[in-house]
Design a protein around this nucleic acid. Sequence first.
DNA 1: GTAACTGCAAAATATTTGCATCCTT
DNA 2: AAGGATGCAAATATTTTGCAGTTAC
Lengths: 144, 144
Amino acid sequence: MNKSETILKSSSLSVTAGRKRILDIFLDANNALAHQDIEVKCSDKYDRVTIYRTLQTFLEKGIIHNIPTTDNSVRYALCNEVCISSGHHHDNHVHFRCDNCSKTICLDDVSIPSVKLPTGYSMNEINMVVSGICKTCKKVKVPV
Amino acid sequence: MNKSETILKSSSLSVTAGRKRILDIFLDANNALAHQDIEVKCSDKYDRVTIYRTLQTFLEKGIIHNIPTTDNSVRYALCNEVCISSGHHHDNHVHFRCDNCSKTICLDDVSIPSVKLPTGYSMNEINMVVSGICKTCKKVKVPV
DNA sequence: GTAACTGCAAAATATTTGCATCCTT
DNA sequence: AAGGATGCAAATATTTTGCAGTTAC
């Protein structure tokens, strides 16, 4: 039993070829994926509607989390073990979006600093996305 | 000369009825607006395409800034004076999205804490969105 | 066998583009 | 008068929904 199957079963989802495939794509990816990225990687094999529904299911089960963007192209990334096992979803890491290669990644080691809200506000979740130049692009010495 | 005209002129944009109207909507609003919010408020008067183009123009001129969301409905809010006058856009405040009323607001007084990125990454902008229950909804004692 | 998942078709919605006309400066 | 802004039509893209057939357990 491979990793994707294990994850699906521990989320009490039935194991289907489509779900395994999409989960494998996430497991292989080293960056967050937009719906379209997934579509490109497997639209020949699975219907677009299935991808929508699968992503929705994964989100609800906490297998993936979504990362906000300013361009109407929400991205998704795998949650870590802790996150998956707990019912409530509480990612606490910073996300990074590279202005050069447009990749979005989870900075698992960088946790979101706390902020003090004004009186009267109560906090549920925090999202933090930093944009700039990533490690890989910096090496290549991109012209700014 | 009213406020919207002043803003348009100082951004070297020609003053048209549509732009003034949309800018006034922002000036009146106490929360961030999605494209659709604006459409609802003036689609009878101005074409949807015009709204798209106007928002794009305002963004480019730094009159408004956009706030990322996880649901493909980017929201826009007025920038403050400093932000408008400077060519480069550097909002540094936290945004708040209420889980109850769904309104998104700028917490102008809460600045984004700094984070230390891993070696090799350089930072350009930071976005921080906190979700929870806002002041107004809390008063009404919403059931959680 | 049954409930859940998937594909297909189609509807609904959102966004972009081209072009002719109108308005601002 | 000239350049830019707008409206309209239409192309394109995205997301949702219903239903019938298929698959996992």
